[in-house]
Amino acid sequence: MPSPSWSKERAEAIIEAHRRREGAALPILHALQEAFGYVPEDTVPLIAEALNLTRAEVHGIVTFYHDFRHAPPGRHVLKLCRAEACQSMGGDALAEAAQARLQAGWGETTGDGSLTLEPVYCLGLCACAPAAMLDGKPVGRLDAKRLAALVDGARR
């Protein structure tokens, strides 16, 4: 997982690397999040200046997209699918079990900072439902037991 502390120099280098691309905003925001784990509020004016936009416009873009975090995540990120195909295989109960086990709601991080739980609406794994993604690794055919083993293994 990326280091949660951000630096202005690194942010500027990232912005500089992408600013000349057509429609550069999303590539920049993705690259910032990849580096820092979230999009630090203090990068908004830097992006605005580089892309010749107002701060309000950049803020509007960052907040429009569900992907961009406004605070650093835990060491691991579990995205649990909440969409229909996973619902049909007990996804709702699985989500409740996950929240209870982690003591964290959607978008929240466990008390020990080890894992952030995020909702996702379909991972394209609908024939292996219920499905999730742990740090970018897909997992399917989940049940409460497999999920518990998965998160416990990651948090150890």
């Binding site: 969409a83 609406y121 379909c122 394209g124 609908c126 024939a127």
Partner: peptide, 11 residues
């Protein structure tokens, strides 16, 4: 963008 639940042909 294949956002529809239950679809994975594009993927």
């Amino acid at each position: 963008d294949e956002g529809d639940s239950g679809t994975f042909a594009d993927r």
